[in-house]
Design a protein around this nucleic acid. Sequence first.
DNA 1: TATTGTTATACTCTATAACTATA
DNA 2: TATAGTTATAGAGTATAACAATA
Lengths: 167, 167
Amino acid sequence: MGTDTDKTGAAEELAATAAREASAPAVDVGPLAGMVGYVLRRAQLAVFDDVITKFAALDLRPAQYSVLVLLRHTPGLKQSDVAAALGIQRANFVVLFDGLERRGLARRSAAPNDRRSYALYLTEEGEKVLARANVLQAAHEASLDAKLGPSGREQLLGLLGRLAKRD
Amino acid sequence: MGTDTDKTGAAEELAATAAREASAPAVDVGPLAGMVGYVLRRAQLAVFDDVITKFAALDLRPAQYSVLVLLRHTPGLKQSDVAAALGIQRANFVVLFDGLERRGLARRSAAPNDRRSYALYLTEEGEKVLARANVLQAAHEASLDAKLGPSGREQLLGLLGRLAKRD
DNA sequence: TATTGTTATACTCTATAACTATA
DNA sequence: TATAGTTATAGAGTATAACAATA
């Protein structure tokens, strides 16, 4: 984007963007706008887009971040516990955790009473990366708060929590 | 599940389920429970699980349903319009729409003023399938309302709408 | 030059079956 | 028998580059 001579100034780029948005009046999605599933999906994609962009510098995906957060909060969990808590298939979690371990962010430790399983922990490096990610996450959350307002955030978490309940 | 002699009665199955849930107290996800992105993602997955299950009888995916709804609301849109409105890449929309056309649910019609593009329409069969899907969708939405309460639904749509805005 | 539809391709995420070693 | 971890694999969904036809 603008890597060469860059004859177009910032003002012209803004004008171009405005024109593009004005000339493309965004087709009305009709009844979809009133369907929770559709609106929920679009919102989730928009939020993840921002998180993924912010985490890109750390080469961290949202799912990887959630594992780091969970292990920081509850060290020593076994793979099945973490996978189940995060809604990840055990089989897929193996590969995900392999990536974290290969990068030295987390480790598998022999479990005390059960030779089938591992106790999972963050490494010191993992703690560092998590700390940096938490800063980005806080900024992300702040930008959401700007859109939601102070009470909106708590309202939203409450409503979404009801939807996530499996029953 | 209980395909053979089935010595276990319904009461015992219920007890087993209760025990399973009691013995697996669902690991606390800690700080994740307060992060909008995480809660949003889990809610979206739960909601989609229900929709996908309900639509399975029609062999319809959420994205396919959204195309039918949009074409019913605004017939004659071209592929780029529909794809952009739904946040689907043009290239991927081609394949998606091929599936609908192959099943006779929608059709590509020659566009009046532009020989590059098609005007898209539902077929009569598509209208029928959409009508059946709308019944299932209404039931789905009703089950969400039961979880959200009457005002919760509108609150949620409003809050999610703010998150989906790209700026 | 820009847009529309298209093909091909690759990458991520997810789901399932099957295996091993332990319990 | 059941559970924990693992491997392999297949299916969605998504993103990008490149091309032909048309504007």
